[in-house]
Simulated scan of single mutants.
Amino acid sequence: MPGDGRELKPFRWWQLPFRALFALRLTDDYGRTTVYALDIRHWQNQSSGNVKAHLYRDGRLHAVSKLPAVFPVPGGTLDVKMSGFGLKRCHYVTDEGPEFQLVPDPDSAEGRRARLDRAHPALSRTIGLLSLCVLVAALAVLVPQLAEQLTRAEGIAQHTGTFTSPIDVPAWGSIVIAVATLAASTERALRLRHSHVLDGAAG
């Protein structure tokens, strides 16, 4: 729906856990530049599925849409999607096909993660690899346990037999895995990385 023209508010440090802010500069054939900004308060109503994206044009609210959202802009569209841990897409998709991720506000969590990547690329790659390894390990634990639960059902067991997971995770281990998985998936969301298998299973 159309926006009401209200002014875009600057990013504040205390909004780090629940606000994402991305920008895109587009220049037309006459050299005029328009700045688009996408403001998403992604923890506000995420449990109810009522998260909205606010599109600002040159600092004024231009349009509002529930997520997932597609906003038409000159030369293409802005595509915004959420995962259970943050954004998984915030891209400018051109009419010709190529797409580009929007630039995060430097004060946002996504912007700080991008700054770490630029300033310390080796450390950034290590953190990213660690996040990936955590999710792969969690999936390796989850799949056998899920198979065990499914084959306990009488209707399934009589056709496939029962399966016993070779991995027995104590209660405290499950908590550790859950916390580590949450941290890993959140870190990946800050980089707008998403896998239906890994991040989807974690969510």
Rank of each mutant, 00 (worst) to 15 (best):
D28A: 02
R25D: 15
G76Q: 01
D105M: 06
K81P: 01
V103E: 15
F163N: 09
T162G: 08
P121Y: 05
R32Q: 14
V70C: 09
A184C: 02
Y92I: 04
D4T: 03
G155D: 06
E187Y: 09
W43L: 14
H42E: 10
R193H: 12
S185P: 00
R6Y: 00
A23L: 01
L55T: 04
R32D: 14
Y36N: 04
Q145A: 12
D117V: 10
L61R: 09
L87I: 05
Q158H: 12
Y56H: 08
G203T: 11
P17Q: 08
W172E: 12
R118L: 08
R118T: 09
I40Q: 03
L87K: 03
L142G: 06
S83T: 08
F163Q: 05
F100W: 10
E154T: 10
A109N: 07
S65E: 15
G49C: 07
H196A: 15
L129Y: 10
C133N: 13
A157G: 09
D95W: 03
R25L: 05
L123Y: 07
G49W: 07
R118W: 05
E99Q: 14
A189T: 01
D95C: 07
L139S: 12
Y36K: 02
G75R: 00
G86I: 00
P17I: 03
S131N: 14
E7Q: 14
L139P: 02
P104I: 02
A69L: 06
D168P: 04
S48L: 13
G200F: 07
